[in-house]
Amino acid sequence: MKISKEEVEHVASLARLEFSPAEIETFASQLSSILEYVEKLGELDLAGVEPTAHVHEIVNAFRDDVVTPGLTNEEALMNAPYPEDGCYRVAKVIEGE
């Protein structure tokens, strides 16, 4: 499985990462060799084998619909890079027209 530079760029954009052209090169080659390696899973006959999402066969964990104490506004914002008016300030999101 060879992964192209364009694919690396697309994946980087999906993952909100940014790379230099040199890094893109390196990633393309490293990811290609890792993906080549994982191709070995294709050797196996998986007919009738169910995927495992959870190792233990447990189901249904719930909580009751009861309010529990959370964080104060100060605690919520204590690590924020740009707190303002009790909120997290971010650059404007472009939407619509």
């Binding site: 694919e7 994946v11 294709g42 196996l44 998986l46 995927p51 999402a53």
Partner: peptide, 25 residues
């Protein structure tokens, strides 16, 4: 990057789901 690629459209079955099935084995 690797994980994003493995989950991205068109590759989910070939990578993620297949890996989950081998996990079963």
């Amino acid at each position: 990057m690797l994980g994003t690629y493995a989950l991205s459209a068109g590759y989910y079955d070939a990578y993620y789901r297949r890996a989950q099935r081998v996990r079963t084995l």
